[in-house]
């Protein structure tokens, strides 16, 4: 395997699925190591989003890490900004900044703030962190692209807890009215927010209350479902989104909070907390074992 770690070449990289999976495992490892080093941070959401982020940054987005403000780049907004370390890990691997810089996550003067800040870190297309706000700027970018006659596409990743926010539905309504097809939302549908709705069966959301695809369709959106941990399934959903004309698409990506580490999966307690030394070692063992992509490169 000839995976090189810093991959700063512009444009989609056309990587095969095995390589994408290896990069995903490495990105998850970075998430855990960075949160461990910082002594704080989110884990469940970043691990849930990792495969989608890797897929977008390596195989889909038309970007140039050496020129993060390139006008024609595709835009990506991590509306669920608390998953910042997932995004930072993937951006580092994609060549936006050195992987070693991940050790500064959450530190004073770091470019890698707790929540993504476009003023601080080149390559962040919109500041986020207050949930529910990312889809609207995405709509603004899509309208701007249309007005400027540019072909770039705007992607916005949402959390399923996040879409409880009313502003999401404001944006959905207006996006529907403007028939934007250069805007795609991706719902990281892991079913667990931070604390959730207490009930006798635990904290998993009940399906009957929660049919996100129907809600998006009611606002005139096209929807497509995928397995958010399967790169082939993600690729198919992305293709379906981009070939849909005259309306925006929401990809409902079925995911697992804490994906990739058995003792973190599906447990809301891992929403945000730092692993112990032993937990980190066990998690790395499950994720990559000895296959450290950076050292191999």
């Amino acid at each position: 395997m000839t995976t090189t770690l810093s991959m700063p070449a512009p444009g989609p990289q056309g990587l095969d699925i095995a390589t994408l999976e290896r990069l995903s495992a490495q990105a998850r490892r970075h998430v855990l190591e960075s949160v461990f080093t910082a002594g704080a941070g989110h884990i469940g959401g970043p691990l849930s989003a990792t495969d989608i982020l890797v897929h977008l940054y390596f195989n889909e987005l038309n970007i140039d890490p050496a020129n993060p403000r390139w006008e024609d780049r595709d835009r990506f907004i991590l509306s669920k900004g608390h998953s910042s370390i997932g995004l930072y890990s993937v951006m580092a691997m994609r060549g936006y900044f050195p992987v070693s810089q991940l050790a500064t996550f959450d530190a004073v003067d770091s470019l890698l703030q707790g929540h993504p800040c476009m003023k601080t870190l080149p390559g962040i297309d919109m500041s986020t962190g207050s949930l529910g706000q990312g889809l609207s700027p995405g709509l603004g970018m899509a309208l701007a692209a249309r007005k400027l006659d540019k072909t770039f596409h705007t992607w916005v990743m949402l959390g399923d807890g996040e879409i409880q926010e009313g502003q999401i539905w404001e944006a959905c309504f207006v996006a529907g009215r403007y028939d934007v097809d250069n805007l795609t939302a991706i719902l990281d549908y892991n079913g667990l927010p931070q604390f959730g709705w207490p009930d006798p069966n635990g904290y998993t959301r009940e399906e009957k209350y929660d049919r996100p695809a129907e809600k998006f369709r009611a606002f005139g959106w096209h929807t497509v479902e995928c397995d958010g941990h399967d790169h082939a399934s993600i690729a198919a959903a992305i293709a379906a989104a981009k070939s849909t004309k005259g309306r925006p698409t929401c990809i409902i990506a079925h995911t697992i909070k804490g994906k990739g580490v058995s003792f973190m999966e599906g447990d809301f307690n891992w929403h945000a907390k730092s692993p112990t030394t032993d937990e980190l070692a066990a998690a790395i063992d499950e994720l990559t074992g000895d296959d450290d992509v950076e050292k191999a490169a």
Binding site: M126, G140, A144, K147, E170, F173
Partner: peptide, 27 residues
């Protein structure tokens, strides 16, 4: 052609403006 009706949705109104500003418009 440069007037955008955003409806009765003030939070979205601000967000859309921010997105357009990030692309070089002055909303």
């Amino acid at each position: 052609d440069r007037f955008y009706e955003m409806g009765i949705a003030e939070q979205n109104l601000i967000g859309v403006a921010a997105g357009m500003a990030s692309c070089g418009f002055v909303p």
